[in-house]
Design a protein around this nucleic acid. Structure first.
Length: 848
RNA sequence: GGGCGGUUAGCUCAGUUGGUAGAGCACCGGCUUUACACGCCGGCUGUCACAGGUUCGAGCCCUGUACCGCCCACCA
């Protein structure tokens, strides 16, 4: 507890984060009542990726709120999770260890991964695969935790969770079984959006559009008995064998005669009906489209609403499957010809099949003119490399489409920061066009805790799923055995088989509020933390994580998951584009923290208000570092040396403290409204004014130039002001404020009480005249400094006389602080006069 | 096509209920000033995107337009 001779910022991050850990500064006290707890549903970063400056940005915002709430007297429940679920981790583990997951294999407890990946991937069971995932992600988590501690996140590090660990699996599975019980989860075999590389179903929320080159092919369809020939345009001629109908708008004059008739597909000779549907757009192509099973989501709508048959040709791996032409479902006028043509397509990818069929169409004369190249938007899985296909498969869904109004209502029960983000949420909910597909044909994830009986004939009975008791969870159906069965009955007639799928990443991460709040694990903690107070997250995952969390809490807890949603913006590079790895403009966060100091980087982040996309700007980090440095230096001045104690009697001191009380009120209101950036701007501005004007003016008096009592007034006032300013800055500059606090206090500033107007007024009293005198003093100082600068002398140059002309009111007001003003401008004589504002300075004769 | 943001000094951004356009950075100039040269003081810098409207008065309210960003829909 002393003031260092040469205070420095270097090394504070390591020293103080270690001290906070030692002292348990951010340890959560679970005995506090609910209304004194502030609980945060922190987004778990994906550990298989790397942290970038965008993470630092948004996690700092949350930390500022957390520190403010803690100082306001709330016990902050602030866990940290690691998202190690999902495809990125799976891919990384496959490459790192050279393994592939084969869920049909039994668990091998003695399996050890090879030092170096072998050329041929080794097949391992799902439990073995997950062990490897955990092994690898544990290392990632250490790196992440170090960065977060270095940044100064006030997380309780005894409360971390991993989304693949047993507690998370248990909550995910339990909440799934509850949905199943309530028939809010169901499975169905249906056309599903499908990624052919990952070979898994994907959800609407995981789609993105990409501009792709394509071409319109004008294709001739021959007349059938009683019909008329017609030409359609398509970008996907390879799907002609999957064509089940043609469709045009019911009001389209051109096609009126065709409705109800049939035409024949080229090459394959399949008779298909010509139908009417309002979704067909007369403006597009020839106004008549071919419906295939399935080329896009519109095909699915037509297929469903027009009750068409299925002729599926695209397989889960993206190639065209075998077809036996002439068999049921594949009737044709010339099976031999169809077979001969189709066999040239079977086994090809959609892209290659397209090239081939164009050749065939050209030969047969059914391609009219040449393909017209276009670029158009095609749907992709956001992590995928090839366009999505639509494949019919058995999938699990959670009901959403019938409950949209309820989700909107929940959204309105929450406070959004900023408010307009709520519109994005409602936009998404209103635009939902199907239930939420939650199953993925992957291995590393939370398995569906379900088996199916195998009938005597060896077929699977999907209608009677076998589910475990909740007390058994979490389970892995690929190795665990349902009650009443033996392990050797797996896959046998009269036995059982496991559901092979795992849950979608959002299906598991959306239970984070229940997971961290210890739902169905610790009723006491749950009652004290749920519904949670805050979900901080980025705006691009409102449609996924936020929405899915609302769905889960609504169905299971009949409430919102949290009462506040704080949506952070993105970090933009100087070209105003979102910073991303692919653009090669990502800066390593630890390097930044080391160069500008964590406080410097926190300052930059804090200036980006809620929801505001913010430019990556090292200039702001430098300014933050300067601010931290200034805190160090002014604190050294205020706290160093023996100082007289006593009442605050001087007008300057009393006025300054009252102005500070106003600042405390304003900053507190801002922070309560999550407007941390606005609060910072006000605090910062006051702080510099305090340093440059108040401290300069009170300095001489505090040195004792006007006696002990006047010195004590200055000393007491500036110590109190510093204490308040440190506390106001603590949520932002977590390190330097803690360092300075330790010079005069034993505890942590981060556990100190948030400053109040009362503590200041108790010392300063209320005196508007004194308050005004501070403003006038600043004006006068500025005018006098300008006069000195004009005469090219230092501000510190002693002068013979200063005559300051000011308005009547200002002159009267300045009389209260005349002694301080005179000292601050180093004048032997100071005369205050009424009149047009101006300054007259008489310099001392130059010393020879 | 629909929705949501944004457009203010060279740059990054503030601008509360309508009342004389702000800060920091950058730039220029001055200053060894006993907390701080990672400092201090001063100066320069604007068709508030554009066009209308309401008003005594508009950066702010209304209508429209342009551009930038995001989300959604459509993508035969």
């Amino acid at each position: 507890m002393s003031v260092p001779e040469k205070p420095a910022l270097e090394g504070l991050e390591d020293a103080l984060s270690a001290k906070w850990e030692r002292d348990g500064t951010y340890r959560f006290d679970r005995l506090k009542p609910r209304d004194q707890i502030y609980s945060i549903d922190t987004p778990p970063p994906t550990v298989s990726g790397s942290l970038h400056v965008g993470h630092v940005f948004s996690y700092t915002h949350t930390d500022i709120i957390a520190r403010f709430q803690r100082m306001r007297g709330k016990e902050v429940f602030y866990p940290m999770g690691w998202d190690d679920n999902g495809l990125p981790t799976e891919r990384r583990v496959q490459n790192y260890f050279g393994v592939r997951c084969d869920p049909s294999l039994p668990y091998d407890p003695s399996f050890v991964a090879p030092e170096k990946p072998e050329k041929q991937p080794i097949s391992v069971s799902r439990p073995n695969f997950i062990e490897l995932c955990v092994k690898l992600t544990v290392e990632d988590e250490k790196v992440f935790e170090h960065l977060w501690r270095y940044l100064g996140l006030s997380v309780d590090w005894s409360m971390t969770y991993a989304t693949i660990a047993p507690p998370a699996q248990r909550v995910s599975q339990m909440m799934f079984l509850r949905l199943l019980q309530k028939k809010l989860a169901y499975q169905v075999e249906a056309p599903t959006l499908w990624d052919v590389d990952f070979r898994t179903a994907v959800a609407q929320a995981e789609l993105e559009d990409r501009e792709q080159p394509g071409a319109y092919h004008r294709i001739h369809f021959a007349r059938a008995a009683g019909g008329v020939a017609v030409a359609i345009e398509t970008t996907r001629p390879e799907l002609i064998p999957a064509c089940v109908a043609l469709v045009a708008h019911p009001d389209d004059e051109r096609y009126q005669p065709l409705f109800g008739t049939e035409v024949v597909t080229p090459i394959f000779g399949v008779r298909v009906p010509v139908l009417a549907h309002a979704l067909a757009d007369p403006e597009k192509g020839s106004g008549i489209a071919m419906i295939c099973t399935f080329g896009d989501t519109t095909d699915v709508v037509w297929w469903r609403e027009l009750k068409l048959p299925v002729r599926a040709i695209v397989q889960p791996n993206g190639t065209l499957g075998r077809v036996n032409w002439g068999e049921p479902g594949w009737e044709t006028t010339d099976a031999a010809h169809a077979q001969q043509a189709y066999d040239q397509l079977a086994g090809l990818s959609a892209k290659k099949a397209q090239a081939k069929i164009v050749e065939l169409l050209r030969e047969s004369g059914d391609l009219q003119g040449e393909p017209k190249p276009i670029t158009h938007n095609v749907k992709f899985y956001e992590k995928g490399d090839r366009p999505l296909e639509i494949v019919t498969s058995r999938q699990w869904f959670i009901k959403t489409i019938d409950h949209r109004d309820e989700f909107i209502k929940r959204g309105r029960e929450m406070a959004w920061h900023p408010e307009y983000m709520q519109a994005r949420y409602e936009n998404w909910v209103n635009g939902l066009n199907g239930d939420w597909c939650v199953s993925r044909q992957r291995f590393f994830g939370v398995p569906f805790p379900v088996w199916y009986p195998v009938r005597a004939d060896g077929t699977t009975d999907h209608n009677q799923p076998l589910v475990p008791a909740e007390s058994r969870l979490p389970i892995d159906p690929s190795t665990d055995v349902p009650d009443g069965y033996r392990a050797d009955q797996r896959g046998q007639p009269g036995g059982f088989v496991a559901d092979p799928d795992v849950m979608d990443t959002w299906a598991t991460s959306s239970v984070s509020p229940q997971l961290v709040s210890q739902w169905e694990t610790d009723a006491d903690i749950f009652a004290r933390t749920f519904p949670m107070d805050l979900r901080p997250q980025a705006h691009d995952i409102i449609r996924t994580w936020l929405f899915a969390s609302v769905v889960r809490a609504h169905f299971e807890n009949h409430s919102v998951p949290w009462t506040h949603a704080a949506i952070s913006g993105w970090v933009l590079d100087p070209d105003r584009k979102k910073m991303s790895k692919s653009k090669g403009n990502v800066v390593t966060p630890l390097g930044l923290l080391q160069e500008y100091g964590s406080d410097g980087v926190r300052y930059w982040a804090a200036r980006g208000g809620p929801g505001v996309d913010t430019a990556f700007d090292v200039g702001q980090m430098k300014i933050g570092r300067k601010l931290a440095m200034k805190v160090l230096n002014v604190s050294k001045f205020v706290l160093a040396g023996e100082q007289p104690a006593g009442a605050v009697t001087e007008a300057l001191d009393r006025g300054m403290l009252q102005n500070l009380a106003d600042l405390v009120d304003e900053a507190t209101v801002d922070l309560e409204l999550y407007e941390y950036a606005k609060a910072l701007a006000k605090i910062e501005s006051f702080f510099w004014d305090f340093c440059d004007n108040y401290v300069e003016a009170a300095k001489s008096r505090r040195y004792g130039d006007f006696g002990l009592e006047a010195a004590a007034s200055a000393s007491t006032a500036m110590r109190l002001a510093l204490s308040v300013l440190l506390r106001l800055l603590a949520p932002y500059l977590a390190f330097v404020t803690e360092e300075v606090w330790s010079w005069s206090h034993t505890g942590s500033v981060h556990r100190a009480a948030w400053p109040t107007r009362t503590e200041l007024i108790a010392v300063s009293g209320s005196d508007e005249a004194a308050q005004r005198s501070v403003i006038h003093l600043t004006e006068a100082l500025n005018a006098i400094r300008k006069a000195k600068t004009d005469q090219k002398v230092s501000v510190g140059t002693p002068v013979k006389e200063v005559i300051y002309f000011a308005g009547d009111e200002a002159a009267r007001s300045l009389a209260l602080v005349e002694r301080d003003l005179k000292a601050a401008c180093r004048a032997d004589g100071l005369v205050l006069k009424s009149g047009e504002p101006r300054v007259e300075i008489t310099l001392k004769p130059a010393e020879v």
